[in-house]
Design a protein around this nucleic acid. Structure first.
Lengths: 245, 245
DNA sequence: CGGCTGGTAACTGTCAACAATCGGCGCGCG
DNA sequence: CGCGCGCCGATTGTTGACAGTTACCAGCCG
């Protein structure tokens, strides 16, 4: 940093893809992106040789990337049998959901005394967006607005560790947004719950906000207990059909 | 799941000598152990060549192990500059502490309706142990009993994801137990807080238990805000001196 | 005497080859 | 005809070597 080797050939050409990251980091980011976007659906087998020639690198960086992904919980590696994209059972998903929203419970307690007017405005705007999409049945857009709402809340907590853990967990769960919505149920009720939470936050009443959020948490759990696994799958399939229309 | 994850059908014969794990797994476990036990204190630089010849393997497995440890948050890797054992600032530690105890808040809500008499008895026993050690000033033993108490609570939740995240976080923080105790303050007060939580749990009153635990959470935060960084370091040093006596 | 420059040594990032292990498949035996 | 056994291809685990970069140090110039 103090001395810079400006004479060194730093090829800063017009290509915007100037990645001076290591190959393993790029492989990691690439695979992570493909998994999170569902281009590599859960259960997909990941073979090192195929990945290496597809990304144009050798197996070393690929192995490191897979190791990192395994530590993040996105893939599971079976010793001497390769890696597969990790999949969550309904049970696993519900448990992760509980943890995620518990983290948000902490987030809102920390965030409420710190929330700035611009932040409150953005949360308000996101809630409005959710309401619009809920009314018109745009479930995908609803989910995205909902995800951003909760992420902003966590960011506003000012707790870096909380943000780190929350993002990791949210990343693991993002692929299962259909299941999230099925468990969440009525979107309009969800919107009104968000409004109530936001109102309490606006008044600086963190205890009420946290209590409302806790109630919000239990909705998917209660619904899941009243559904069989088959009903859950059927509801997910129904969502998929609707989305394709 | 992140660390050793899925190794099934592991039959350990009488000889602990021959581990049929991969070298990278053994390197990972070895380094993890050395870091958690403070034999590799925070800030220690980890050079691949030195590690590889110390463990008798080549650099490949070492690199994989370091990558896993980095994903777990136990080391930080600086591109092209090697890895160092991760250290937590007071700020980081407090944030991690908040998250950890928030996770326990979820744990106790889930655990209370499920707690069996044997589990309650063990929690009672651990609280008694804490009281004994608090009275005689055996801070190390107090901390261990306290850690087990909270871990049992998390186990009793029946939520595997919660257990996984909690263990990871507790592992990161375990090296800083002195700081934990300094922030916690009066041990006898801590014991009585545990008793109150346990009483509520015994009566099946999860809301009261969770509320008491939430109050329990805020103690270190409040204390930290009333201490300067120098006072914190001095108090830690004081603990160290006492421990050596 | 201090700051900059050039060289050098050490370390990380990457690769291709070697070795070990697993699963599948066909053959032979009961 | 069913079942077990051993070979074989494929894939992972591991290694040593090579290349690029960083940090350190000595020497020169101002």
């Amino acid at each position: 940093m103090t001395t810079e080797a400006t004479v060194q050939g730093e090829q800063n050409d017009g290509v915007p893809e100037l990645e001076n990251l290591t190959l393993s980091q790029r492989a990691h980011a690439h695979l992570r992106e493909e998994i999170l976007s569902n281009r590599l659906p859960p259960g997909t087998e990941l073979q090192e040789l195929a990945l290496s020639q597809r990304l144009g690198v050798s197996r070393g960086p690929i192995r490191e990337a897979l190791g990192r992904l395994a530590a993040e919980g996105l893939v599971t590696v079976r010793p001497r049998r390769g890696a597969v994209v990790h999949s969550l059972s309904s049970e696993d998903f519900l448990q992760a959901y509980q943890v995620r929203e518990a983290l948000e419970g902490l987030a809102i307690r920390l965030a409420v005394p710190r929330l700035t007017p611009p932040e409150l405005d953005e949360l308000q705007r996101l809630t409005d967006t959710m309401e619009t999409h809920a009314a018109s049945g745009r479930v995908t857009e609803f989910f995205e607005a909902n995800a951003v709402f909760h992420e902003r809340l966590v960011d506003a907590s000012g707790n870096a560790k909380l943000q780190e853990i929350y993002r990791r967990l949210a990343g693991q769960m993002h692929r299962y947004w259909r299941r999230s919505l099925v468990l969440r149920g009525d979107l309009r009720r969800s919107v009104s719950e968000h409004r109530a939470i936001l109102d309490a936050a606006r008044q600086g009443d963190e205890e009420t906000a946290a209590r409302l959020l806790a109630d919000h948490i239990r909705v998917p759990q209660i619904r899941m207990q009243s559904m069989t696994a088959d009903e859950l799958l059927e509801a997910e399939a129904s969502f998929e059909r609707k989305e394709e229309a």
